[in-house]
């Protein structure tokens, strides 16, 4: 017993917190990259998450595509949709007040969610767990479905790869340069607009990747992203805007905090993240991992 809660239950909730935190990490990472480079508040992040899940659902359940293939293809497809959106609409708003970007991306949410609701209804569609990952692992303190363990590995690997690309490769170096001084980067012969399009594609691709991972766990339904996106915003603010490391660590951490809150005071679990956001903004306005800029 620990704090009046059986140790077994505590360990179980910790484990689940890590699973949820992995989703948060991937989603907030995508959002942080997009904000870092485009300075756009991508409200459509949840809708791209949903689009990833639906693309996977349509490919797998209707065309019988293999799960692993879908896990790769759906994010690529959604990234292409995202790049098209950036190229056609979003780039017209750079340099304007961020509220325009918010309005545009929010309208995309309305269109996508509304469209999918008309086509598929609001109850959601079942998505079966791939056969290879259907079992469970007995951890002693809990029975962990194999698929959830896979989610942790897949999500954290994708975070690591993204971090590596941005921090350790020349592509990432150009990206970081374009974030700081787009004009100067352009002068060095780097095609900044193309880099920006690619960044948006990568960001929403990550959201779609999380969506495919989530499909067998949550029912695939049109509003699956809208409840998440607000939490993700809060996580990005807590972690420090535009901070890659901050987004990943805070995502994981808050997943765990939320899981523990469910155990001690379940009704509070949907509020705790925002309470932490308020506290962080009061004490460290730039976020836990953000840099103060004057």
């Amino acid at each position: 017993m620990l704090f009046g809660v059986p140790l077994q239950a505590l360990m179980g909730q910790l484990m689940l917190g890590i699973v949820n935190g992995s989703f948060y990490a991937v989603l907030s990472l995508g959002l942080a990259i997009i904000f870092g480079v485009l300075k756009i508040v991508n409200f459509a992040h949840g809708a791209f998450f949903m689009l990833g899940a639906f693309t996977a659902f349509l490919l797998a359940q209707h065309l019988g595509a293999n799960y692993w293939f879908v896990l790769f293809l759906a994010p690529v497809f959604v990234a292409l949709v995202g790049m098209l959106f950036e190229w056609l609409f979003l780039r017209r708003l750079y340099g304007l007040d961020p509220i325009y970007g918010l309005l545009l991306t929010f309208s995309l949410v309305l269109v996508l969610e509304g469209g999918f609701r008309v086509a598929f209804g609001s109850s959601g569609q079942p998505f079966s767990t791939p056969d290879m990952l259907t079992g469970t692992i007995n951890l002693g303190f809990m029975v962990l479905p194999l698929y959830r363990a896979f989610v942790i590995v897949a999500a954290l690997s994708s975070c690591l790869v993204t971090w590596y690309v941005i921090e350790r490769t020349s592509l990432g170096a150009s990206l970081r340069a374009a974030t700081e001084r787009p004009d100067l980067t352009q002068a060095f012969g780097i095609n900044v607009p193309r880099l920006v399009t690619l960044t948006y594609g990568a960001g929403v691709g990550l959201a779609a990747f999380a969506g495919v991972l989530a499909a067998p766990i949550f029912h695939v339904n049109p509003s699956m992203g809208s409840s998440l996106v607000i939490t993700i915003f809060a996580i990005v603010v807590i972690g420090g805007l535009g901070s890659i490391k901050g987004a990943i660590i805070t995502g994981l951490g808050l997943g765990v905090v939320e899981g523990l809150t469910r155990l001690f005071y379940s009704e509070f679990s949907s509020t705790i993240v925002f309470l932490i956001m308020v506290l962080v903004l009061m004490l460290r306005p730039a976020g836990l991992f953000g840099r103060e800029e004057g």
């Binding site: 309305l110 915003f233 603010v237």
Partner: peptide, 22 residues
């Protein structure tokens, strides 16, 4: 940075208003 402030404001206000219902 105005953009950062806007992000924070939006995150805060959407949390308060619970935007998401359409």
């Amino acid at each position: 940075m105005p953009a950062k402030n806007a992000f924070t404001t939006i995150a805060l206000s959407s949390a308060v208003l619970g935007i998401g219902g359409i």
